[in-house]
Write a protein that binds this DNA or RNA. Structure first.
Lengths: 204, 204
DNA sequence: TACTTATATTTTGTATACATTTTTTTAAAA
DNA sequence: TTTTAAAAAAATGTATACAAAATATAAGTA
C-alpha cells in the first residue's frame, strides 16, 4: 500500500496522506483530528482537509473526528459483511468468470507461493478483487471498496504473520471457480475469510 | 417521508431539501446539480451545499454531479445487496429477537392490514428496520441505512400500487421469526424482497 | 455544412475570514 | 480539596473571494 500520492487535487492528496498515516499507525487510534493542524501539516487549506475527513469517516476509519480503535466486535461486524458479499461474489465467479480473469487468478495463487511479502500482499488483494469483479455488481464492489482500508489492516496481519494454509485455501477457491462449482466456491470463500478473521483476532 | 427539515445546521438542511426534491421527482433524473444555483435557491452558501452533495453522492442518489436515473440493472444491483443483508438479518432475528421487538413487529403487520397508505409506508419501513436491528451489526445496519433513499423509491411503488401479498409475506416472516426458524425466515425475507423488486420493475 | 480553434462563460476547487459553538482553563465559592 | 461559574482559547460551521479547470459560444477555415 502507501498510495501513489499522485493526483493533482488537494483533497485527494490530503485523503491519501491521512489514510496512510492512520493505516501505518503513525496516527494512533483514538487521536482527535483537528482540521487546522492537519491543514498546516499537509500544506493545504482546511477546505480539502474537511472533504478527506468526511470520506474517511464514511470509510469508517474516522468516527466523530477521532481515529477509530477497532474493537474485536467492530472487526467481526466488518467481516460478517465481507463474508456475505465475497461469498456471493465467489458464487458468481464460479458461474461466469472469463478466461482472462481465471488466468489472472491463477497467477495470484502462484505469486502467493513464491513472492516476497510485498508481492504476496499485492497478489492477495488482487485475488479478492478479481473475484469481487466477477460479481458484476457495482454496488457490491463499491461497498467492499469502501472497506479496503479496514481490510488492509487484516491483510497485513495475515501475510506478515504468515497464516498457515492461506495460499492453499486460495488454491482451493480457484479450483472451485475454475470447475464451475458455485456452492463449493461460496463455502470455501466464507471459510477462508472466517479463518482470516480468527487468525487476526488471535494475533491481536 | 419528506423529512423534518428540523436541524440547526445548514449542511443538514441542504441535504434534506435536496434529497427530498430528488425523491419527490421535483428534480428529475439526469439533472446536473450546480452548487451555486442550489446555494442561492436554498439560501445558504456553497460550503454546506458541497457537503450535502458529497453525502448524496455517497448514497448513490447523485453521481458525478448528476441526479441518477436508475436503470433496471442499477435497481437489481441494489436489491441484490439488500436481499443478502436483510436475509442475514432475518436469520439473526429468528435466533435472538427480544420480546418487545417481536411485539413491535406484530404491530407493523397489523397496521399493514388496516392503515392508510402513509401509515402502511411507515409500518413497512419499521418492519424492515426492526429486523435489521436484530442483526446487531452496525456495519450492516449502516449500509442498509445508506440505501434508504433508494429503498424509499421502491416502497412508494409497492405500497401505492398495492402489490398483492405484501402483507401476507410480512406475516409469514413474522411467524418464522417468532417460532425461531432461521432458515425459514431468511428464505422468506429473500423471496419477499425479490417479489418487491420484480413488482417494481414491472410497474416502471 | 462540418470542423477547428479561439474566446467567453460557467463551474468547480481552494484559501481565507469571520461567527458560532465547544472545550479548556482559570478563579472564586462551597 | 472539590465544585461551580466565568473567561479564554480552540475548533468547527459558514460565507465569500479568487484561481484553475471545464464547458459553451462564436468565428474562421476547409
Amino acid at each position: 500500500m502507501m498510495a501513489k500520492q499522485s493526483t493533482q487535487h488537494a483533497y485527494i492528496k490530503a485523503y491519501e496522506i491521512i489514510r496512510d498515516r492512520i493505516l501505518s499507525g503513525e496516527i494512533e487510534g483514538g487521536t482527535k483530528l483537528v482540521e487546522e493542524r492537519l491543514a498546516d501539516d499537509i500544506g493545504v487549506s482546511r477546505t480539502p482537509i474537511r472533504e478527506s475527513i468526511r470520506r474517511l469517516e464514511q470509510e469508517g476509519l474516522i468516527s466523530k473526528k477521532k481515529v477509530i480503535q477497532p474493537t474485536e466486535s467492530d472487526l467481526r461486524h466488518s467481516f460478517q459483511v465481507r463474508i456475505l458479499l465475497e461469498g456471493e461474489a465467489a458464487r458468481a465467479a464460479a458461474s461466469y468468470m472469463t478466461e482472462e480473469h481465471l488466468d489472472a487468478l491463477r497467477q495470484c495463487v502462484d505469486i502467493g507461493k513464491s513472492g516476497s511479502k510485498e508481492e504476496v500482499m499485492e497478489a492477495n488483494k488482487q485475488f479478492h478483487d478479481i473475484i469481487m469483479q466477477a460479481s458484476r455488481n457495482p454496488v457490491m464492489i463499491g461497498i467492499i471498496d469502501q472497506m479496503q482500508s479496514i481490510i488492509y489492516l487484516f491483510r497485513k496481519t495475515v501475510v506478515y504473520h504468515q497464516r498457515p494454509l492461506l495460499i492453499e485455501e486460495h488454491e482451493k477457491i480457484y479450483e472451485a471457480i475454475r470447475q464451475h462449482q458455485p456452492d463449493q466456491a461460496e463455502q470455501l470463500m466464507k471459510k477462508h475469510l472466517q479463518a482470516d478473521l480468527d487468525f487476526s483476532l488471535h494475533v491481536f
